[in-house]
Design a protein around this nucleic acid. Structure first.
Lengths: 170, 170
DNA sequence: ATTCTTCTTGAGCAATGTTCATTTTCATAC
DNA sequence: GTATGAAAATGAACATTGCTCAAGAAGAAT
């Protein structure tokens, strides 16, 4: 993404882009907000009646979104602000909202465990799934090939839930 | 990293940097080669007598390296080549060498499973650990806080191995 | 000493984020 | 309808940075 390209696409001058977004970071962050919104909408569409099916559905939805919008997700997770400016509060809040969708079913599956513990477990699980998907779609390094990603991701969730004692080993 | 800074640090001209490394990508890749080498050395230092302890040791070593050299690892995993040039074969081979260290103990722990299956399992596990660590050290988004990373990473490995039926649930 | 090869240099180019004085637009007042 | 002032839009110009290449320096061979 280049400021000049944005200006041309919008049919305005370079200066107007800066009036609207402040600087390049502002431009990126605007895109990232959009990305989190779209991702959240997609995750919210996953049925929440059965927590186990929901977890699988969420992982699958995340994979789908990552597949279709690899660049957007990379921007969201890899973009670094200039001058060590802090990451914007509002985007963080939006991400937490999306994350709550993944946290809830795990809470239902582990009702007896310490809530703080489950919070960390769900963060671990999200980070793990994110790593598997992002490396897998990268298609380089030691990753799971994309064509197997969907099936393997389901297995991974099952294996981990089995390790947590939520379900039996297949 | 800037070409001009490298030239100054090396006490030579800008042109000489280009003679030596070709272009900016070449510069980055040289650093990345160094990074993989250092990481491999560190992983090789993990005792391999007990596969279970080895897996924990490898995860811990990876965390240690990532903590001390966060920027180098980011460069290795996030750098994109210009013009969609292919990722260099030799670096890929180096990474595979490092990865073999993580693959071996899992093979020992799962002697009866299909080797191709175990290969994918170890790739999954590496990607998961990588995701947990890289997001965790990022300290933004939905990540595991760095101060808990070490302990939680150990738990994660145990949980996953339990799910695979290698060890019992704690 | 001469010639040829190889290496080194850094001025200059191109791309791109950024600024800001100037111009244009537009609402309000009379 | 004109004047006035605020607000917005503009794009020329600047700074940074990756990159090129003609010219020069250094070295090898005869």
């Amino acid at each position: 993404m280049k400021v000049r390209d944005v200006a041309e696409a919008a049919g305005c001058s370079i200066g107007s882009v800066y009036n609207e977004f402040g600087d390049f970071d502002g431009l990126i962050l605007t895109v990232n907000r959009e990305t989190v919104g779209a991702l959240t909408a997609r995750l919210k569409a996953v049925p929440s009646d059965d927590p186990l099916r929901q977890l699988h559905g969420l992982a699958d939805a995340y994979l789908g979104f990552a597949t279709e919008h690899a660049n957007l997700l990379r921007s969201l997770f890899e973009h670094r602000m200039e001058d060590d400016r802090p990451f914007p509060e509002d985007i963080l809040a939006m991400v937490m909202d999306a994350f709550a969708l993944m946290h809830a079913p795990l809470v239902r599956l582990l009702p007896d465990r310490d809530p703080g513990d489950v919070a960390l477990l769900s963060r671990m699980m999200f980070s793990a799934v994110h790593g598997i998907i992002s490396l897998g779609l990268e298609e380089r390094m030691v990753a799971v090939p994309p064509e197997m990603l969907r099936e393997r991701l389901g297995q991974f969730v099952d294996t981990h839930l089995a390790g947590l004692g939520v379900i039996r080993r297949a």
